[in-house]
Design a protein around this nucleic acid. Structure first.
Lengths: 126, 126
DNA sequence: CTGCATCCTAGCAGATACTG
DNA sequence: CAGTATCTGCTAGGATGCAG
């Protein structure tokens, strides 16, 4: 049962991720495109086409797909302006911003260990 | 050029991720299995079979594949004890621990917004 | 026990085209 | 402009077998 673990006696984050719903959420969110979209939305509200421009290399399909997923999980909010042509804007919810903070951490990490990783790779070829 | 952005004038993490090597690192690392392995190794050194037990649902193949990747990028270290049967242990490097800190953040985030996400999903079905 | 290679399949993800 | 659907290729990832 879900609530059992929530009020549970363990503080082990990994153990808790054994919970199937938590793992499902984690799997949804722990993928490249989702994280890059969240990072992009961290700067503020963006429309669909703007997002496409910011998240380099993402396809139309992957963008909509991941946006639906983020909306479904309550991480992003979708507001449609009934104009013509339609204008659809996406913004992070509170939960979304919470996650963005950790994604920021990952980005910073990437740059902190950039050279370290670069040389580790060279060492690895041998 | 890589170093241009490293010493560059922008503080925008997302912009910097436009750099191809940074994106490659990010893509390597921003996947479910890699993050779960790192989280598991956060507790300390583990052998291959122990890891398989901790990272629930991972296959033999995905585990070796991701471990090679982590090793290649200098996030995990592999030490072989030349016994029989062989005993291979994996441990996080400093860079690995750095990343683990942010993964911990993601795990905590998952549990903080667990109920929030649960209800967001119910709202979404309509 | 660990690692690598092989085969094989489901589902991911791109391209395209069509609606509102 | 935004979203959906279809078609298709391709690769991620499981299962298995073998070697060290």
């Amino acid at each position: 049962m879900v609530t059992k673990r929530l009020s549970g006696s363990t503080d082990d984050a990994n153990l808790r991720l054994a919970d199937s719903l938590a793992r499902e959420i984690f799997s949804d969110v722990a993928n490249k495109w989702a994280l890059l979209i969240i990072e992009a939305l961290g700067e503020g509200t963006l429309r669909f086409s703007e997002l496409r421009g910011r998240v380099d290399g993402i396809s139309h399909k992957m963008l909509t797909q991941n946006l639906r997923m983020l909306e479904r999980n309550g991480l992003a909010e979708r507001t449609v302006h009934p104009t013509v042509p339609p204008r659809v804007e996406y913004t992070l919810t509170e939960a979304g911003h919470g996650l963005r903070a950790t994604v920021d951490g990952m980005c910073e990490w990437t740059y902190r260990y950039f050279r370290h990783i670069e040389s580790a790779r060279q060492r690895f070829e041998s």
